[in-house]
Simulated scan of single mutants.
Amino acid sequence: MPRDHIWQQISSLLGSAENSITLIAPFIKKDTFKEILEIVPAGVEDIRCVTRWSVPEIAAGVSDPEIIDLMEFDKRIKIYLCHSLHAKLYIADGRCLIGSANLTGKATGRVSASNIEVLIESETSHQEIQRLLATVEAHSIVATSDLAQQLREQADLLREDDDAPMLVVPEQQEPSRRWMPETRRPERLYQVYNGKYGSVGSDVLAAVLRDLAELDIAPGLSLEPFKEAVRGRLLLIPELADLRDTGRLNMKDARDELIARSGCTSEQAQRSVETLAEWLWHFDEVHLVPVGAWEIRQGREIT
């Protein structure tokens, strides 16, 4: 089997299209996308692309938001983002290929150190293909040039930060450590998430970007869904189990548990617990109660 067998499969399918094509892949590199467009017959009227833009992945170099630039030269292209996307599916009219290969040089066999991939041909009418398409459509948003530029800028800043978490590519590698909030300014998260950080100091910005990289929240959310996503991730932190399960958390107990779990000093653990309290105050409905050691309790305090 030739090294570029996957590329030959994709080329053959898309080259036979008459009306429309759909490209669904989490990772799409601009050079590979350009080569795809050269294959698509001129008579095809619609080119629909669904992908995933995540700041850590862009920083790691596996995905290029710059594919949005190609829309300026080919008005048939429409690009959508689906943050939970893992499937790889390529459709030409009523036929499709489904399998493991992204639209990258390594996945398609266009570079020497290529991946081992598989694509299986199927009819688009297959019930599982239809289920996948419906799910992807329900969870997708329209990609824009502004969003592409914003995510690229954040990815570049993350790459320049020596203290940033290791750039982990989801699907390929598990994080080496669990996340605890770093920034003491959680109110800055949504501002930076939206690319508005001209007035944010460099130290605060770096910490916020590191937290956003660990959170890896879908782009383009409005404020309330963003806060809900952060809140959901916070409540997965083991030290907050009591708050999640009983509605209250003793801060001394949380500090002691953090010391036992991570081996950090008492001072470090105290700072982490105080930071967690700041985040919970901003993203959740909680209040502090001076009962022995202070407690965090669910619900806003009525004054």
Rank of each mutant, 00 (worst) to 15 (best):
V208W: 00
G109R: 09
T135V: 05
S114L: 00
G105Y: 02
L158V: 03
A155F: 02
A213E: 06
L205Y: 02
L158I: 13
D216S: 12
E171S: 08
D156M: 12
T144W: 03
L212A: 09
L151Y: 07
D216E: 11
I98E: 02
V169A: 03
R159N: 10
L147S: 04
P165A: 08
P225M: 10
I141V: 13
D161S: 08
S125W: 02
D93I: 06
A206Q: 13
V208G: 06
L223G: 01
S176E: 12
D211T: 04
L89Y: 14
P181T: 12
N102Y: 05
F226C: 03
V118N: 11
G109C: 11
N194S: 09
D163Q: 15
A134H: 12
L209V: 05
A143Q: 08
L205T: 07
A155K: 11
E214G: 01
Q150I: 02
E123G: 13
N115V: 00
G109D: 04
A92R: 07
P219A: 00
R177S: 12
L85Y: 10
E174D: 09
S202V: 15
G99V: 10
E117S: 00
E224G: 00
L119E: 00
V168M: 02
Q173V: 14
Q127L: 04
V142W: 03
A101S: 14
E137A: 14
I91N: 09
E137L: 05
Q150G: 03
S100L: 10
H83C: 01
Q150N: 11
E137N: 10
R177N: 02
S112A: 14
A113I: 06
V118Y: 15
R152P: 01
N194C: 13
S199N: 04
A113C: 03
R188T: 06
L221S: 04
E121D: 07
E214V: 05
L209G: 06
M180E: 14
Y193C: 09
T104Y: 09
V111Y: 03
A207P: 02
R178F: 09
G105H: 11
K88R: 12
G109A: 09
Q127H: 12
E123M: 05
G99C: 04
L151V: 08
E123Q: 08
A113W: 08
L119Q: 01
S114D: 08
A143C: 12
V142A: 06
T183N: 09
D156Y: 03
E182Q: 13
